[in-house]
Design a binder for these strands. Structure first.
Lengths: 140, 140
DNA sequence: GGGGACACTACAGCCCGCTAGAGGGTTTAG
DNA sequence: CTAAACCCTCTAGCGGGCTGTAGTGTCCCC
């Protein structure tokens, strides 16, 4: 009767859709930890699956792996107080908020372009640099 | 009385804050065009400044240069009808919208983490993999 | 106990979006 | 006329986030 050691790397890969190589890479960055069996294999707790999903989500939103590691590992670098975790999260939240605002503005830009194009834009001329931007021809 | 040829690359760089090398790189990707003087220098129309600003904005929001080129250059690859430009923009707008939704959801996640941490989270234990995620200890 | 799937390390390479440097020509201010 | 500042091309390298390969060891099912 063997002791349950946790998930092997391939199982984590399968459950998360993240490649084995990527998981090992995460480990080198301190994003994901594992215990080693006597065979040298990595064994992960079940929660590792969640953690990897969190990583993917954050990454999809433009956070770098380094950023994510910072959020994820705060309590491991010395005995940092809980307030720091909160302020770190707060900072990320504010960054996210700012980014959302920018995106909304940019979306409005694109909508303006779309509508202008539809209504009053002349067909592009050979001298145009870009259909989306007022053309200023070379002066002569 | 020399003919006004437009902006030299250094002027565009200065006005946009984008490095000269980056502008030349954009050209190789078909993002930005220029005319060449007899000296071999690139000369840009005034609108190039706007165009570069557009590029930076889009880029800051996670669009790849290739994506941006696609939006910017549609009318140059053959005689593509105007509807395509509109549908392309529409697609980008929808992508942006979806991304905004994801960000809002992720922000909510982070807020949950922040609040949970503040109220009922125990101080981290040595066995935890991550302060933000329910700990499932190695079974034994 | 043999074969295939799976794991390990170490290192090389790839794509993206640049930057830096070599080696050379052009423009322009004094 | 000269020196500095600018421009050119070409090639190399870098950081981030991986993927792939080589060479080897381990697990597990029949």
């Amino acid at each position: 009767m063997t002791i349950a050691l946790g998930l092997k790397i391939g199982e984590v890969a399968k459950q998360t859709g993240v490649a084995v190589g990527a998981l090992r890479y995460y480990e080198t960055l301190g994003l994901l930890r594992s215990e080693r069996g006597d065979n040298g294999y990595r064994y992960y707790p079940l929660a590792a699956v969640q953690q990897v999903q969190f990583i993917k989500k954050a990454q999809a939103l433009g956070f770098s792996l380094e950023d994510i590691a910072e959020v994820l590992n705060v309590h491991q670098r010395g005995d940092i107080p809980c307030e720091l975790v909160q302020s770190l999260l707060q900072t990320k939240i504010e960054q996210l908020d700012a980014q959302i605002q920018e995106m909304l503005a940019f979306k409005a830009d694109l909508e303006r372009y779309r509508d202008r194009w539809g209504t009053r834009h002349p067909h592009p001329q050979p001298g145009d640099i870009c259909p989306l931007i007022e053309t200023v021809p070379f002066s002569s």
